[in-house]
Amino acid sequence: MTRRDHLERAVLECLWDHPDGLTAPEVVDLLAERQPALTTVHTVLDRLRAKDMVLRERDGRVYRHRAVRSREEMTAQAMLAVLQDSADHHLALSMFVRSVSSADAESLRKALGAGEKDRPTRRRPS
């Protein structure tokens, strides 16, 4: 993993810890040990938004950023992508054994489906 990935992950972890959302300066304060510049944090947040991992909402005069999916949802989604790979080869990865049952995939799908409904509708970045 590169340095860039590390910072993106650190920022996303801050947002996971604060489900109510954070402004960019708040993220800078939370990452005080790393001493990132405010512009760097803005760039990282933009990149995370481009990856559909973060959304931002206007709150008065500032933007609040929130994680689109929780850590658990993101893990579940990654697992589901792997489990569903056999049929249409959309990842074309090589699995050791295709062992996990279809019931597992179904439970993952259900868990993600439920999470999807609770989430506020996403707005396109303006």
């Binding site: 991992m53 993101m74 062992s99």
Partner: peptide
Amino acid sequence: DALAMVAIYDPELRVHIIDDDRALAY
């Protein structure tokens, strides 16, 4: 991109580890 956020790299085993109960390797 998702793995970069949720997986942990183990430099000793040289693998990325996902925190999930289901047993998978790929």
